[in-house]
């Protein structure tokens, strides 16, 4: 029996694009009203997973139940309840904003009154009310993305699937976009959002880290950070890139990640390793600003998880 408290239940999902296994025995659950992040680098299998959930791609194995509908057995049933926004929402650039909205509304069989109300509300929410007569092709990138979201929401879906929605969108539009997502989640819409940006993942209620089609782990962003074995220390230095070689094989260092002008070292014990590393750098006369313990970011977590899975 489908459990209504779960918006998405994925179990043992496999999808092959020979010779590559794009999704490898993936299982996770998303509860209703949650903002769930699928996080991973390009090629992690995020888009494939999204497409299976949207009912436009049949998996090779496993099951996926979305909004109570089995998308493997009956992919059409789910379409009335969900909305899928690919990386680039398919807008007709030669139609106006309101014509695009109208087109998608009619494909979902929305009545005219419902459409007009929803369109007015959604356009106002993203500050686009005065652009309704403009050709979609004449909108900026951020506005196109927001129009895509308006079209995707015109039939008030219960689940919104967003595949890297803020890719190539300026920071201001990105913030507005997230504000809209939180608003939607507050109204009870479940959102599954894929991203390659880890800073964006931290905005989700829960994230699933994916790598090469497999789930590394899945939890709240804060909890994931706590799970990291050992600690992360940052070596801040203008020559951080050069220090990488020096420190990669130091005692107690699992892995090294370069972020801006800092090296993030994954170590077993911060209290023991900080003095050791400072001394080693001093001894070689390599310049650095500071060596401190930091709270790991999801990016740290991700890199550590990936390197832990594949020891080089």
């Amino acid at each position: 029996m489908p459990d209504e408290s779960w918006a998405v239940v994925v179990e043992g999902l496999v999808k092959d694009f020979p010779p590559v296994r794009a999704v490898d025995h993936l299982s996770f659950r998303v509860s209703a009203g949650e903002i769930f992040g699928l996080v991973g680098p390009d090629g992690a299998g995020k888009t494939t997973t999204m497409r299976v959930l949207a009912g436009v791609m049949a998996p090779d194995e496993g099951s996926a139940v979305v909004c109570g509908c089995d998308v493997v057995r009956d992919p059409e049933a789910v379409k009335q309840h969900i909305s899928y926004m690919p990386q680039r929402f398919g807008l007709y650039e030669d139609l106006t904003v309101s014509e695009n909205i109208r087109f998608y509304a009619d494909l979902f069989g929305i009545s005219r009154r419902q459409r007009e109300q929803a369109a007015a509300r959604l356009l106002a929410a993203c500050g686009m009310s005065e652009f309704s007569g403009r050709l979609a092709g004449k909108l900026s990138g951020g506005m196109k993305q927001k129009l895509g979201l308006v079209c995707a929401l015109i039939h008030t879906p219960r689940l919104l699937l967003l595949d890297e929605p803020t890719n190539g969108v300026d920071p201001l539009s990105r913030r507005e976009f997230w504000a809209m997502l939180y608003e939607l989640a507050a109204q009870g819409v479940t959102i599954v959002n894929s991203t390659a940006y880890l800073d964006e993942a931290e905005r989700c209620h829960r994230v699933a880290l994916m790598h090469r089609g497999r789930l590394l782990f899945c939890d709240q962003p804060q909890r994931l950070k706590q799970r990291l074995p050992g600690a992360v220390i940052a070596v801040v230095s203008p020559i951080a890139a050069r220090l990488r070689e020096e420190l990669a094989h130091a005692d107690g260092v699992h892995s090294v990640l370069l972020i801006g002008d800092a090296l993030h070292l994954f170590v077993d014990d911060a209290a023991r390793r900080i003095p050791q590393i400072s001394r080693a750098l001093d001894a070689k006369g390599l310049f650095y600003d500071e060596v401190v313990r930091i709270t790991p970011t999801i990016e740290d977590l991700f890199v550590n998880a990936v390197t832990a899975q594949e020891p080089h």
């Binding site: 949207a54 009912g55 436009v56 059409e76 379409k79 009335q80 969900i82 909305s83 899928y84 690919p86 680039r88 929402f89 398919g90 807008l91 007709y92 650039e93 998608y104 494909l107 979902f108 069989g109 079209c151």
Partner: peptide, 16 residues
């Protein structure tokens, strides 16, 4: 053309 501009994928996720 709809395939190339991405609207076809969008149409597929509608109940059409």
């Amino acid at each position: 053309r709809e395939h190339e501009i991405g609207t076809l994928e969008q149409i597929m996720v509608t109940p059409i």
